[in-house]
Amino acid sequence: MRLGYIIPFVLFFALAVALYVGLGLKPRDIPSALIDKPVPEFNLPPVKDHDLGLKSADLQVGEVTLVNVFASWCGPCRVEHPVFMALAKSGEVTLHGINYKDDPDNASNWLARYGNPYKRAGADRNGRVGIDWGVYGVPETFVVDQGGRIRYKHVGVVSQDDLDNKILPLVRKLKAKK
């Protein structure tokens, strides 16, 4: 019976361990439900003053691609933009863009001013395609494999470090798998 008195301590100890582990977790990062699933069906017109829109078929051409969700009203997108410009220049992997809930003129000006790293950039005016992709915060970046399956999702700014240590290694691995 005396042992019963130690139960609260044991339970608390387990709780404290869980809380300690919890401190290292990021509750705000929501995993994508689309990992290893084919990209959603969609067909977006090009961003104003640009020629190439983006549709599902463009991601199923047997090539590993990155899809970046961006908007001119999104401050953090400015931060990651130079990283993508450099990537586009290197030509290591094709980058497409989805322009999320943006004003056409603003989007066009933004790309004119800071440069266009995207091979194709579709304009998602009302955010519907964004929902199909499971987008909940801009910027988000997806890695799509040769078969048009989503393999990885990065939420928030892609830093040079994120690109070099997370995204590009995965791209290389996917390419090698072929």
């Binding site: 005396r2 008195y5 609260p8 100890f13």
Partner: peptide
Amino acid sequence: VVGGSLLLFAMRGP
């Protein structure tokens, strides 16, 4: 605080 007091409880409670 909590661990210490529950330990104290386990020792003195009975």
